[in-house]
Design a protein around this nucleic acid. Structure first.
Lengths: 215, 215
DNA sequence: GATGGTTAGATAGTGACACTCTCCAAGGAA
DNA sequence: TTCCTTGGAGAGTGTCACTATCTAACCATC
């Protein structure tokens, strides 16, 4: 199909598709002539994923490009490809090692991780994980505001996260081919985030009503 | 204290504080003379909250202003104030009623909500909740990508969210005064979001290693 | 009582980001 | 032949969260 048809079928403006092509988020179409190219259903599928990552998952364009590149890196095994794709998502920077709040946050976080028996291998230390750094930054900010976020407070959330991860991987394992699994893992990781947060807010409203509203 | 001291104690650039004052995120200081104002510890606390909302919670400045305004609206009761504050956070718009994906998403979401027995009162219908709309948008995007997100898939996530909400409200109820509780609710809702998402990604990495990596 | 350094407040500018517009030459259709 | 469309490239747009500059007033010091 032509770019115009790709635009119509995906609902994405033609100029935006050109921009994604330029940025390398979409592979170029098959060049038919010097001024025309042909796009297939794989392009349509990829375009939908890109849109969902950017608009629903709020992933920056540059990060989305890295994520998609990891999806197609055949030199990695399954687990590693998942890791690389998720690692390409935006994360917090390394904290200031002299900040006492950051030190306390690290202690709490490590206690929770160890308490749940989570293990890190030699090639995959916890410090190299972007999620770990993002977690440190958030806990540091909470501590600085004076909110409780020691290991006792974090543990229930970590247990809920562990449950969620089991559900996530069950969904991923429904797919048969490794390629589908990796794409599903990225899509489900990123696109379920607003789902989880919205469900939490709805649940909070229920719980708040249950506790604070006299019927 | 002077603006310069407020800046030093909070770690926020003086120009940024001026910007927040201009935007109404911080109340003005007590004017001492025509060119000097005095700020107290309440300003410092508020400034830290603003920073955390914007930088950790990624709340837009305009939304943060609305959230803070709701914190101080004495005309509302406790539960309503929580609702208004959380509702001021950014949410997805109303979906296109003709979109079949959106219709299917609404059916799934409603089934999950009803399945958990969540109730909505007359003054608080589910359709008026921003979290509900954001949830619909995310589920619609997943469905459009071809990922499973029926009631069966969403239910485990909703149960995890319900658990999380109980933990959240337990933390909120540690505070004694209503004012502290409302501020804590906002801070914990927004600032625990990156905590939850980071913990989920760490848990996913563990679960992925457990399933896919042969020791 | 001149002087140098701050201060609050206003205005304009910056850089990042995600598009979006405009133009161009080459194809294809009427 | 004429007109419209296409893919591609560069420049422009709007938004957002700051940030730099300026100005008049103020305070402390000499």
């Amino acid at each position: 199909m032509r770019l115009a048809e790709l635009s119509e079928r995906s609902g994405v403006a033609a100029a935006t598709i050109k921009y994604y092509l330029r940025e390398g988020l979409l592979p170029p179409g098959d060049r038919v002539t010097a001024t025309q190219a042909d796009y297939g259903t794989a392009h349509l599928q990829r375009l939908k994923l890109v849109r969902a990552l950017i608009q629903v998952g709020r992933v920056p364009v540059a990060a989305a490009k890295d994520v998609l590149a990891a999806l197609e890196d055949d030199s990695l095994d399954h687990h590693a490809r998942l890791g690389v794709a998720v690692e390409a998502l935006p994360n917090a920077p390394e904290p200031d090692p002299d900040d006492p709040y950051a030190q306390a946050a690290r202690a709490s976080v490590d206690a929770v991780i160890d308490g749940l028996g989570w293990q890190y291998g030699g090639s995959d230390p916890r410090g190299s994980s972007g999620a770990y750094l993002t977690l440190l930054a958030a806990v540091t900010a909470l501590a600085r505001l004076g909110y409780p976020c020691g290991a006792e407070e974090l543990a229930p959330y970590a247990r809920a996260a562990a449950q969620t991860a089991v559900t996530d991987l069950d969904l991923v394992e429904r797919y048969e081919s490794p390629a589908e699994q990796v794409e599903a893992a990225v899509a489900l990781t990123v696109l379920y985030e607003p789902v989880l947060l919205s469900l939490r807010r709805l649940a909070q409203a229920q719980e708040s009503a249950r506790r604070f509203v006299r019927p």
